[in-house]
């Protein structure tokens, strides 16, 4: 198989601006099918902007985003979900006025295979038993950690080809971080879900990812297999605080 057909997501020369400010300055990257790819970088590097551009939340200035054979550049977000992309946004963004169950059901909004949806619901509850105990509780009343579990679970419910995760470790304790990262590895291995993981916690992200990119003020300054990135002198200094 050619390089191209193995690739799930191809981003080419992507430029995104907020008004006059360039947040992404022509970056290119690719995510291979079945892999966990991580994008690490400091605050304000443009990591969330990249995910927003892929899922259609923000307009792309120039460049191209394609998923398999489909060009998804600047499609409306709900259409991009239809192509099999699911985005768990920064800051969880749980529907505070919906119950845990309804939040998860909304994750599966476009799916018509109700039996498989029920199975996936059970799977989420197996991974996060805390959510099952709170199934009829309003999303807004969950703790931060529970909301993070719900955000990951909700994105999984779409059974996407490509899962975009924006800092799932943000603001939660180390035990839960570990559990969530274990879950990410599990859904990648068992369901074969391709994952693009944005993280500031470079240490953990590089540990579970196959491949990594380092983003700095809108430019990709380094890429490679995550073991190589983890050994890089620059990364060790700047992101692994050694």
């Amino acid at each position: 198989m050619s390089q191209l057909s193995e690739s799930m997501l191809e981003v080419t020369s992507l430029e995104v601006k907020y008004g006059a400010i360039a947040a992404l300055r022509g970056i290119s990257l690719s995510v291979k099918t079945g892999q966990i790819v991580t994008m690490i970088g400091a605050n304000g590097a443009g990591k969330s902007t990249l995910l927003r551009a892929i899922s259609g939340l923000i307009r792309v200035c120039s460049g191209n985003i394609s998923l398999g054979d489909a060009d998804i550049t600047n499609l409306p977000p709900h259409r991009i979900v239809g192509f099999g992309v699911s985005h768990a946004p920064e800051g969880r963004m749980i529907f505070a006025n919906l119950t845990v169950r309804e939040n998860l059901e909304m994750g599966a909004y476009l799916r018509r295979d109700s039996d498989a949806v029920a199975g996936d619901l059970d799977r989420v509850f197996l991974l996060f038993p805390r959510l099952k105990e709170r199934i009829n509780q309003q999303g807004g009343t969950l703790s931060g950690g529970e909301q993070q579990m719900l955000a990951v679970g909700r994105a999984m419910m779409a059974r996407p080809k490509l899962l975009l995760l924006d800092e799932p470790s943000l603001g939660i304790g180390p035990i839960l971080v570990k559990a969530i990262f274990q879950t990410i590895v599990e859904i990648n291995r068992e369901l074969g879900m391709t994952i693009l993981l944005v993280e500031q916690n470079a240490h953990l992200a590089l540990k579970i990812a196959h491949y990594g990119y380092v983003l700095e003020t809108g430019n990709i300054i380094l890429e490679g297999p995550s073991s190589e990135i983890a050994c890089n002198e620059l990364v060790r200094k700047a992101y692994l605080s050694e």
């Binding site: 899922s55 259609g56 939340l57 409306p76 977000p77 709900h78 979900v81 239809g82 699911s86 985005h87 946004p89 963004m93 529907f95 505070a96 006025n97 919906l98 309804e102 059901e105 909304m106 994750g107 909004y109 476009l110 909700r154 779409a158």
Partner: peptide
């Protein structure tokens, strides 16, 4: 109806679920 309540919470997040706003 659930989609209506989701949209009333936040249009952008609702659109990430595949909901056509």
């Amino acid at each position: 109806g659930t989609a209506m309540r989701a949209v009333s919470f936040d249009h952008r997040v609702a659109s990430l679920m595949g909901i056509n706003i």
